[in-house]
Structure formats: C-alpha cells, structure tokens
Simulated scan of single mutants.
Amino acid sequence: MKKLSYLFVALMLFVAGNTAVAQDEEISNEDLRRYALMMEVVDAMKQEISDITNEMIRNQEGMSGKRYMELSAAKGDDAKLDEMGAKEFEKKFMELVTKEQDERKEAIGEVVQVLATKMLPGGGKTYKAIKSGLASDESLKARYEKIEAQMKLKEDGDA
C-alpha cells in the first residue's frame, strides 16, 4: 500500500511538473511582450490617478497631502472620519476624490479587458495564465522581467 502511495505521489509530481512546463511553453515571449505593453498602459493610467489626486489636493484650500493621507485611512467610513475630527468640507472632498479614483479604476479594468481580448492570442485566457504564472512560476517571471527590461532600454534609447 505504501508503494502505491509513493507511486501516486510520484505520478502527481510528474504531471504537475509537465503541466508547469507545458504552461510555460504555451506562453510565448511574444505573449509576454504584449502583456508587458499592456502593463505599461495600466501603470500609466494608475500614475494618472495619483497625479489627479495630488492636483485635487493642491487645489483644495485647507487640505494638505498629510491630512489627505490621514483621512484616507478611514476608507470613507463616516464614523472614523468623525473620530478624526474631519470637517464637513473634508468629508465632501474625500467623497469627491474617492469617486474620481473609482471611476478611473473602473476604466482601467475596462481597458485591461479590451486589451487582453485584442492583444493576446488567447484573449482573457492567456491574460489569466500569464498573470497567475507570474505569481507562481519563477522561470516565467524571469522571462517576463528580461522582456520588460529590454522594453525599458528601448524606451530610454528613444528618449
């Protein structure tokens, strides 16, 4: 019985190993390059959210970056904002900023969905495979980082 258990475990390890290799082979360097381009777009959109938030803070009389960070820790909870001594204009400002950020985050999600569908050969399936692979597969992650670094070098060379 023990021998059968060992054989079963060995078989499972073999299948898992082959599945990882097969998954790695299914994801081509071109797929990774396209994914990296998508992530550049997403990163630029995320940076835009940060830039807009900072501009809103600068333009709001009576609001500083430090105070915004304190209030953002409440995550929109009115009771917590009251505990922090938030004034009415601060609460309204936080609502406005959160609404703006949420709209832009939603837009990022939509852009990712469209780009994944249009840019990657398997669409969302390939996107999900790459995303999960990058979290769990060190060789895939290394390939991706190499491609990402090459892209950054090309960008720096063009600038």
Rank of each mutant, 00 (worst) to 15 (best):
A74M: 06
A149F: 07
L32Q: 00
L37Y: 06
A16L: 12
Y144D: 06
V21F: 14
I27Q: 13
I130G: 07
Y127H: 04
I130V: 11
K2D: 10
Q150A: 08
T117M: 07
E138Y: 15
A159L: 14
A86V: 02
A159R: 04
P121M: 11
M151G: 13
A44V: 01
K3M: 02
G124I: 14
A74G: 08
G65Q: 06
E88H: 13
D137Y: 12
A73W: 05
D78G: 01
Y68Q: 08
G85S: 05
E100Y: 13
A135V: 11
L96G: 07
G17Y: 08
D156R: 12
K92W: 00
G109D: 07
D31Y: 11
K87E: 05
L13F: 06
E110L: 07
G157L: 06
Y127L: 13
A107Y: 09
Y35V: 01
A10F: 11
E30K: 12
G62T: 06
F8S: 09
A159P: 12
K131A: 12
R67P: 14
P121F: 09
R58H: 04
L115P: 08
A10S: 05
D82F: 02
V114N: 07
M84Q: 13
G62N: 15
G157F: 05
L4D: 15
A44F: 14
R67Q: 03
M1S: 07
K105L: 14
D43F: 07
Y127R: 04
M119H: 13
D82W: 07
L134T: 07
D51H: 11
D82V: 03
R58L: 13
E40P: 08
A129P: 02
M63Y: 02
A36S: 15
Y6H: 06
